[in-house]
């Protein structure tokens, strides 16, 4: 069942900002409070807003559950893969092999309080992106599957 036009217009205005705020929290996980779990939950909240404002049927026709499932699995595989990549290069499992390397996310940090730089922290941003992708896809698919069960009951 669709909500009224006022609710739908409001959610249309709100959801891009919620998504972008969630992606910001994920991307700046190594600089500001928050990280993959929190940012992914914020993005899933935006998806929940769209699902509430429009009906389950309309949202289900727009996105495929298989894509979200793939996204969730891909996040976990990226997480483990980033940990395993260090073993190929000769480091222990989960060693931060990108920190202070000078390549991607490899800048050093001046000790002491400072505002920080996005291009630091080694593989922590990769981990944040992986966990954020997983949490976002996972929570969205949980909402969709639960609503599919409710719909079958005839409510």
């Amino acid at each position: 069942m669709r909500m009224s036009k006022i609710v739908r217009t409001g959610s249309d205005l709100m959801y891009p900002f919620i998504f972008i705020f969630g992606w910001y929290v994920i991307m700046h996980g190594h600089l500001t409070p928050g990280g993959g779990f929190q940012g992914g939950a914020v993005v899933a909240t935006g998806a929940a807003l769209v699902i509430v404002a429009y009906s389950y049927q309309e949202v289900n026709a727009m996105i495929k559950k298989a894509i979200l499932m793939f996204q969730e699995s891909g996040g976990l595989v990226l997480f483990i893969g980033a940990g395993l990549a260090g073993m190929i290069l000769g480091f222990p499992f989960f060693y931060n092999w990108l920190a202070n390397s000078g390549s991607l996310f490899g800048m050093s940090v001046i000790p002491g309080p400072n505002p920080g730089e996005l291009n630091t922290a080694g593989f922590l941003p990769l981990m944040n992106i992986a966990v954020g992708t997983e949490v976002w896809g996972g929570l969205t698919i949980v909402i969709l599957y639960m609503l599919s069960g409710v719909e079958k009951e005839g409510i």
Binding site: A99, S108, V109
Partner: peptide, 20 residues
């Protein structure tokens, strides 16, 4: 800050020292 090159100590602990 010198080992992991991060300003956010909480993220350092959660994702690196306690990554497992």
């Amino acid at each position: 800050q010198e080992q992991i090159a991060t300003n956010n100590i909480v993220t350092t602990v959660v994702f690196d020292y306690r990554g497992f």
